[in-house]
């Protein structure tokens, strides 16, 4: 048992152990990191066996690129952090087949090589490998470069939906009708109904309150309109304007609005009072009202 033997046993144990953890771990990310350990141990085995260039290429390409790519894929597919219990099938058939393959190959190789002592060749340098690649194996090398280019183009075509997509077989047919509330799933329909009911209730409450106030005003006409009442009217104006100016369902902001009557004049509110006052604070209005064709009303206010 030489130093090389001891090193290979240790590195092989690390490689096989972390490989077993790769295929049994319940954490996706931990599997990736155990793969790093396993590949690093295999690179150490290459170093012991004298294939120096292969070892460094292994570390550069596998540990540096392939595993990082795999971890990126784990990230992009929103893999859960922590153990996930749905990663595995029932293990028995897989264990049978995998164990059979592994043990069969092991028996075969052990029977072929026994405990024979081999002398290690002098470690190969990058110079010798380069001479081989660009001498005897230059044609496979070039073919491999074309294959890499094809894989690159294929990956780009696959991940871009706008190129290489098959034409839709029913592209000529009319597009499917917009699914209305009837075609919705029951949860969505129920939710929409609840929202509509809540809005209707709120509107009815505000209207009822306003009507009650007006009734009291009518009932007591003698009451003087104080400054407080005027402020209340103004606030109500603001509320109703914001409601009217709010984006409507089914209307995009750039769609021309129908020329509404002056949106700031609302029936049965004391617009005369608010007309004469300075401009209302703009923070109360939201969104699309900025783009309303309400220039004339602004001008009216100015005068």
């Amino acid at each position: 048992m030489t130093v090389a033997d001891a090193l290979m046993l240790a590195l092989g144990a690390i490689a096989v152990g972390s490989g077993a953890l790769v295929v049994t771990s319940a954490h996706l990310v931990r599997s990736g990191f155990y793969l790093v350990v396993s590949l690093g141990a295999i690179a150490g085995l290459y170093l012991v066996l004298g294939a120096e260039l292969v070892a460094w290429v292994q570390i550069l390409v596998y540990v540096g690129a392939v595993v990082v790519l795999l971890l990126f894929a784990v990230m992009l597919t929103r893999a859960p952090i922590g153990p996930s219990d749905d990663l595995d099938r029932p293990a028995l058939p897989a264990a049978l087949i995998g164990g059979g393959v592994g043990l069969g190959l092991t028996v075969l190789l052990v029977d072929a090589f026994r405990w024979t002592e081999y002398e290690l060749p002098p470690p190969g340098t990058g110079r010798r490998v380069g001479e081989q690649i660009f001498g005897a194996w230059v044609l496979p090398f070039e073919v491999l470069s074309i294959l890499l280019l094809a894989a690159l183009v294929g990956a780009i075509v696959l991940s871009r939906p706008d190129i290489g997509a098959r034409p839709d077989p029913n592209a000529g047919a009319e597009p499917a009708p917009e699914p209305g509330p009837i075609g919705e799933s029951p949860e969505v329909a129920a939710r929409l109904e609840r929202i509509a009911a809540r809005q209707a209730a709120a509107q009815a409450r505000v209207r009822a309150q306003h009507a009650a106030e007006q009734a009291t005003e009518v009932a007591e006409p003698a009451q003087e309109q104080t400054r407080e009442d005027a402020l209340k009217d103004q606030a109500r104006n603001v509320v109703f304007q914001a409601r009217e100016g709010a984006p409507k369902l089914g209307r995009t902001p750039d769609m021309p609005l129908e020329p509404a009557p002056d949106p700031r004049v609302i029936e049965s509110t004391s617009t005369e009072v608010s007309r004469g006052r300075p401009e209302l604070p703009r923070g109360t209005r939201k969104g699309p009202p900025r783009e309303l064709p309400s220039g004339p009303t602004r001008d009216d206010e100015g005068t």
Binding site: M8, V16, G19, V23, A94, G102, T106, L108
Partner: peptide, 11 residues
């Protein structure tokens, strides 16, 4: 080691 790793990969 290689045979065992291959078996693990199949598994």
């Amino acid at each position: 080691v290689a045979a065992l790793l291959f078996g693990l990969g199949v598994y």
